[in-house]
């Protein structure tokens, strides 16, 4: 019997970006040398529950799971995979946070892709809502530097990473951004396509909504280097539970502050923030503390 680790990749219905990001890692070749691949599959397409059942319990050393959970069958498969795998990596924003599909939890009738929701009850959940997850690799799709770190720590090193490791920075995106911080109050909300930002100054200081302060870094602030705001794909920074709530909290703290108890002006600025949930909870609605829309009278 080979002493190689057994690796499996499983993608529930997703866009294919996670699989690509893993395959394009410069350390892929090194990883493949050191592992036996049990399967490299997308939901239903390559292997059925029976096929998965055929593996020994804990027979897979590392399972990389990508994509959101959205119905009974994806939940059952996730539970089955949990039995078969010693370690599970929640890979990419959908598995980690619910991803962009999670906004469908808030807006009834919305569909990003044709997820086969079997009934009205189905809603998008992150993997960790259903099974214990050992490691997390954030990002939509995960950036190269983080993928490389995961490959190195999981497959190329003799040490086993501690359970709960997130293969990203423990600091926020701001720590990697490098833009100048000028501490302006927020007096009006600007949009980067109608009103392009100064590429050297903090976007929030210029009035753009950027999720950098509340989002886990490790991406080298890739979006900011393109002169665009961070949209939060890596999920909340360590210590924060609700990414959307945290950015709203931060923005409300930055409005120009009259302090006189007459907050009409401040409220006007806050009212002008467009698409609050789509902006603050873009990837994390399904893993937010509220999880989905409720019917609460008004």
């Amino acid at each position: 019997m080979s002493n190689k680790k057994t690796l499996a990749f499983y993608a529930a219905s997703g866009c294919g970006g996670c699989s690509q990001s893993l395959m394009l890692s410069p350390s892929l070749a090194a990883m493949l040398e050191g592992v036996d691949i049990a399967f490299w599959a997308t939901q239903g397409a390559d292997l059925t529950s029976d096929d998965i059942s055929g593996f020994d319990d804990k027979g897979i050393d590392v399972l990389i799971y990508a994509g959101p959970l959205h119905d009974e069958s994806s939940i059952d498969t996730a539970k089955l995979l949990r039995r078969k795998a010693k370690r599970i990596v929640s890979y990419g924003a959908c598995a980690h946070l619910g991803g962009l599909c999670g906004l469908t939890n808030v807006y009834p009738g919305a569909q990003l892709r044709a997820l086969s929701k079997t009934d009205g009850e189905g809603f998008v959940q992150p993997l960790s809502a259903v099974i214990d997850v050992d490691y997390i690799l954030p990002g939509c799709p995960p950036p190269e530097a983080m993928v490389t770190r995961m490959v190195e720590e999981l497959f190329l090193s003799d040490d086993v990473p501690e359970i709960g490791t997130v293969f990203a920075s423990s600091k926020g995106v701001c720590a990697e951004c490098g833009r100048e911080h000028v501490r302006n109050p927020l007096t009006a909300i600007r949009r980067f396509h109608t009103d392009p930002p100064d590429p050297s100054v903090c976007l929030i200081d210029q009035g753009y909504i950027c999720l950098g302060p509340v989002t886990r870094g490790g991406c080298e602030a890739v979006c900011l280097r393109s002169n665009r705001p961070c949209t939060g794909c890596a999920g909340p920074v360590a210590g924060v539970l609700d990414q959307g709530g945290a950015i709203l909290h931060a923005l409300a703290s930055l409005v120009s502050f009259s302090g006189d108890g007459n907050e009409e002006k401040e409220h006007q600025v806050l009212d002008s923030i467009p698409d609050v949930v789509g902006t603050a909870y873009k990837y994390s609605a399904a893993s937010s503390l509220l999880k989905k829309r409720v019917n609460d009278g008004k």
Binding site: C15, G16, G17, Q20, G99, L100, L103, T104, Y107, G109, A110, Q111, L112, R113, A114, C140, P141, R191, F192, H193, T231, P274, D275, G278, T279, K282
Partner: peptide
């Protein structure tokens, strides 16, 4: 599906985010 379900997904979202969302239909 890129029909009504997608249109209602996008309704209310920011115009500048369209290029971000659509590529996650199929990367």
């Amino acid at each position: 599906q890129t029909g009504d379900g997608f249109s209602s997904y996008m309704r209310g979202r920011l115009a500048e985010d369209l290029p971000l969302y659509v590529q996650r239909l199929d990367t």
